[in-house]
Nucleic acid binder design. Sequence first.
DNA 1: CTGAAAGCGCTTACAG
DNA 2: CTGAAAGCGCTTACAG
Lengths: 334, 334
Amino acid sequence: MKKYRPNISDVARLAGVSTATVSRALSNPSLVSEATREAVRGAIAATGYRLNETARNLRHRRTGGILALVPNLANPFFSQILSGVASVLGPAGYNLLIADTRTAGADRLLDYAEPSRSDGLIILDGSLPVSALTGRIPIVEACEWVPGLVAPRVKIDNRSAAGLAVQHLADLGHVRIGHVVGPAGNVLSVARLAGYEDALRSRGLPLVQSAIYQGDFSLESGRAAAALWLQQPQETRPTALFLASDAMACGFIGEVQRHGLTVPRDVSVVGFDDIELIAHISPPLTTIRQPRTAIGQVAAERLLNRLRSIDDTDEDTILPVELIIRASTAAPRR
Amino acid sequence: MKKYRPNISDVARLAGVSTATVSRALSNPSLVSEATREAVRGAIAATGYRLNETARNLRHRRTGGILALVPNLANPFFSQILSGVASVLGPAGYNLLIADTRTAGADRLLDYAEPSRSDGLIILDGSLPVSALTGRIPIVEACEWVPGLVAPRVKIDNRSAAGLAVQHLADLGHVRIGHVVGPAGNVLSVARLAGYEDALRSRGLPLVQSAIYQGDFSLESGRAAAALWLQQPQETRPTALFLASDAMACGFIGEVQRHGLTVPRDVSVVGFDDIELIAHISPPLTTIRQPRTAIGQVAAERLLNRLRSIDDTDEDTILPVELIIRASTAAPRR
DNA sequence: CTGAAAGCGCTTACAG
DNA sequence: CTGAAAGCGCTTACAG
């Protein structure tokens, strides 16, 4: 018993028809008579035939795959987006390929936009060079975006979302409101910082450098920001902080609690993203919810439309955010 | 200016050689004279030629991809494993395909082990049916495993790892030690429960049904377990709990804190996995660290070895775990 | 409704 | 060291 993989000719021979007919019976049955279809079905069952996708793809000059470029796969922030992407791509018959732009060597960068590698790109990493991506295969950007790249973007309005967070703190009566920014140069960091500044200005609140802390979205950088904040004089340091990610907010809260302070009694904290865990820590975190599954789904749908030439606009899709008020924010102590 | 994708014949023509020579210059340069190689290089640069992977794969009767089957992509637990997988597969020239076994329809299940879909499988979901996976392409299992499936497994010793957690609690002086199990029927749940029971027995501690709570690895199920625990009489309920996942431990701690209790003063808690966040909540969680990146890397390496016929053993790789003692555990109150 | 034939873009055993 | 030719497994315009 040899391990032989039957091909379309084996089926054709057994069914007593040509390979063309088998092919049609498979991909466009209405072109084939019922009797012939039945014969083909029988031959397929008898041989255990399965279509070779690689051959079909070669013939169709496509790959059958969509490549998602993620800055850091280990970061759980992306898994939910990818889950949304996968839920759309699977049923549509596309494979989801994933590449971690950090662990993949820079030499590999040029291959991303290779038409022989995938039929389309979903970009989740705004720090990629435009030149490597431009003009080869359809692209959609999700969450982050590459400045200068012409492609539809599926995202939230980061600037006004940041404004929501800060306004919430202002509404509670806070005057000295601080901000922990994301990674330097990151498009999201820039937009959220701008929203923070917008909100302070529109409320006539003080905008001072000492209330802005550098972060990089990570837990550890939130902890470090807290360490700085703890060293500042109590009378002048912020009574409330808006942090550009939930992870940083967690790190921040953990550190101030370790120093015997209480949130929100001693300091109010707002995060960004609404990752699942932070509803369960104490205090549960007030944050801006980002519809991550929906972002992934819509990005995948728009890319599929481009592949089918339905979507010919470069317009962005802006999805709504929501301020989720939990227990990490309160009026300032007086 | 037409958008024309040059192929190997275009390069051959320009270089004044045959396509066979171009092919050799690309994949086995030592077979080709330096002068010819140079000519080919020039022609490639001039035409902007890029190898078509699909065609090469068809010729080689392979796909160039490895498919990872994940039970739930949205669960961040898997992202770090996938990160390890990606870091090995990328440099080896393989694409990483990912499928979410939950969102993909059951009809798609049979396609997973399709040789035309991928060259090998990394299985992270122990609940898949053996029949759908058997005997088609090389498989490696990581973390979870499918009972009855003959394939190398890369995992930890869940049973003794659970024992470590329980022994730590016993060492602190706890007598009534409870356990929140993972999803019913899950291979990890079963192994960790067995390890819990082992440890109690070997210490001569009471093993009672009322100290075992059903969970499913999720935050919410940890919260629900806490709700049950809170209702039990203080004199008989466990003074310490080992939970089969960090997520459940977070949910548990959050709920008991919400009821005004303090961890570890009122109850000690040990989790499992060592996900990043739980070092930063308060109290920082004592847990069993699972080397997730390494699990992903080793799984990918073993699969690559199988594809190259280097690895011909079905033996499991057992990676070491570590008990990480933080602040969520202490001696029982007396 | 069906078949013969060309072709998608590569690779490689064979011959020289 | 190099080329002609067959072939990987499909699909589809063309002809009947």
